[in-house]
Amino acid sequence: MAITNPFSVDSKVRRAVARVERERAASRLTATFAAKALVLSAVVAGSVVLLASRYSIAIATQKSLCLPPYRVWLIDKTSVEPVRGEIFAFRSNGLSPIFADGTTIVKVLEGMPGDQVEVTLEQTTINGSQVAEGLQVAIDQRVDPQRYVRKGSIDRGRYWFFGKTSDSFDSRYWGSVGADQIIGKAYPLW
């Protein structure tokens, strides 16, 4: 084994060449990594934009849930064709002070245009079938429940939505929702 002088010109040249080769290798790795990272970032950003254009999330913040046990919903904004018995999300309009205008609300679509609706103190029926019991929200809010008793048909382009609990603030109290307020079909997450 030969002993080399670490202070010789030859040793200094070898160290310099080795350092340059390491730096070149690192820059190639960094450039490759940067290119891959850029492509991956573009794919992820595009996917997020695509998903956000089709889906959104609704979170029920109220204490009492009207569609228990679910509090978080996935909304498919491309599925807006009203279907009786399906769960939909819509934007509130004129429901203050309970809900500010524009609040996302998730309920079951029970009433379609032309359906006959009757709200009594005991129950709410659509085409003679019971969809809700009583007027508990009116009682809880100390409002005369008689104020909500009515009978009639649902106008064209309007829909009635209900929760599954007696204390659900729904169409019994505020009437119909316009087709333009419907955001899309809602799917329970948890």
Rank of each mutant, 00 (worst) to 15 (best):
A52R: 14
S27V: 14
A52V: 04
A18P: 05
A35Q: 09
V44W: 11
A45D: 03
L29Y: 14
R22H: 07
A37N: 11
A60W: 02
V49L: 15
C66Y: 05
A37G: 06
T32H: 11
Q62H: 12
R54W: 04
A45Y: 02
A45H: 00
E23W: 12
L65P: 01
S56L: 10
L65M: 06
A31S: 13
A35V: 05
A60G: 14
S41C: 10
A45M: 05
V49P: 00
L51I: 12
R19I: 06
S27T: 15
R19W: 00
R28W: 07
R24S: 09
C66L: 11
V17C: 01
K63Q: 15
A42W: 05
L50H: 08
L67D: 03
L50V: 11
A16L: 08
L29K: 15
V17H: 01
T61V: 08
L29D: 14
A60T: 15
C66P: 13
L65A: 04
V48P: 01
V44R: 05
A58P: 00
T61D: 10
A52N: 15
A34L: 12
A58W: 00
L50G: 08
A35P: 02
R54A: 03
L67F: 02
A18F: 00
T30G: 06
A35F: 08
A42E: 04
V39H: 09
R22V: 09
S47E: 06
A37E: 07
T61S: 10
I57T: 08
K63S: 15
L67T: 07
C66V: 15
L40W: 11
Y55N: 02
T61P: 03
T32P: 05
P68Q: 07
E21V: 12
A25C: 01
S64Y: 04
T61Y: 08
S56D: 10
A31H: 07
T61M: 09
E23D: 11
T32D: 15
V20P: 01
S53P: 02
E21R: 14
V20S: 04
L40A: 13
S27R: 15
L65V: 02
R54L: 02
A58T: 05
A16K: 04
V43I: 12
Q62N: 15
L40S: 13
K63E: 15
S27H: 06
R24P: 03
E21P: 02
S41N: 08
A18W: 00
G46V: 05
T32C: 06
S41T: 11
S64F: 01
S41I: 04
A52C: 04
L51G: 06
L67H: 03
V44H: 06
A31T: 11
A60P: 06
C66M: 12
P69Q: 09
V43L: 08
A25L: 11
I59M: 08
V48D: 02
T32V: 11
A52P: 10
Q62E: 14
Q62T: 15
R19S: 09
F33E: 07
L51P: 03
V49T: 14
R22K: 14
S41V: 04
G46D: 03
R19A: 12
S47C: 07
S53Y: 01
V20Y: 01
Y55K: 02
S64W: 00
V39K: 07
P69E: 08
S64H: 12
A31Y: 01
Q62F: 05
